[in-house]
């Protein structure tokens, strides 16, 4: 009898933890609402200010945005990271990268500036710390999906 009660308690504990996920949508709406409230206060109307987070949270949030991108489409995102670029024959790709706290992995977002600029003269140096703000967007090339901040501006 004791074992059955213990077992039921364990299952109740496990399922009560699962129930936390039911408030995900409410929490996300609240986060969005809170961010919108904060954006109403600021002139920049930022929905997700990743630049305010520490490395661990910022890296995780970028991964979350890529995993559940539908929730973040067309939201204004502000991110601080390292400037990186990839020069190809067809086009140049510019990105703001965040390294995780072990510095072995990085996650980032590509950005496309609102105002056309010439590389490398009007872009930061590769490896510089930059803060970029833009609208989260996704696009496909071939069979791959990519994510970017369109209409972006480099704040600092």
């Amino acid at each position: 009898m004791k074992k059955i009660i213990s077992l039921l308690l364990v299952m109740a504990f496990a399922f009560s933890l699962c129930a936390c996920g039911k408030s995900k949508e409410t929490a996300d709406k609240k986060v969005s609402t809170d961010n919108n409230i904060s954006s109403e206060k600021s002139a920049d109307s930022i929905d997700y200010d990743i630049s305010a987070l520490n490395t661990t949270m910022a890296y995780s949030q970028v991964i979350e945005m890529c995993q559940n991108y539908q929730k973040y489409l067309n939201k204004t995102v502000k991110i601080t990271g390292i400037f990186a670029c990839d020069i190809t024959d067809s086009r140049n790709y510019y990105a703001c990268q965040i390294k995780d706290n072990t510095a072995c992995c990085s996650a980032g977002l590509e950005f496309v500036l609102k105002d056309e600029k010439v590389y490398p003269d009007e872009y930061p140096n590769v490896g510089d710390t930059i803060t970029v703000m833009g609208v989260f967007n996704q696009y496909t090339e071939g069979t791959n999906r990519y994510f970017e901040l369109r209409d972006a501006t480099i704040i600092e």
């Binding site: 699962c18 996920g21 890296y59 991964i63 995993q67 995780d100 706290n101 072990t102 072995c104 992995c105």
Partner: peptide, 23 residues
Amino acid sequence: SGDVCSTLFGSTSILTLTPTEVY
């Protein structure tokens, strides 16, 4: 090297779980 380091030290794997992995 990033994948290996992430697997060996965990890195932020615990903070990048999908709902399916949690279930």
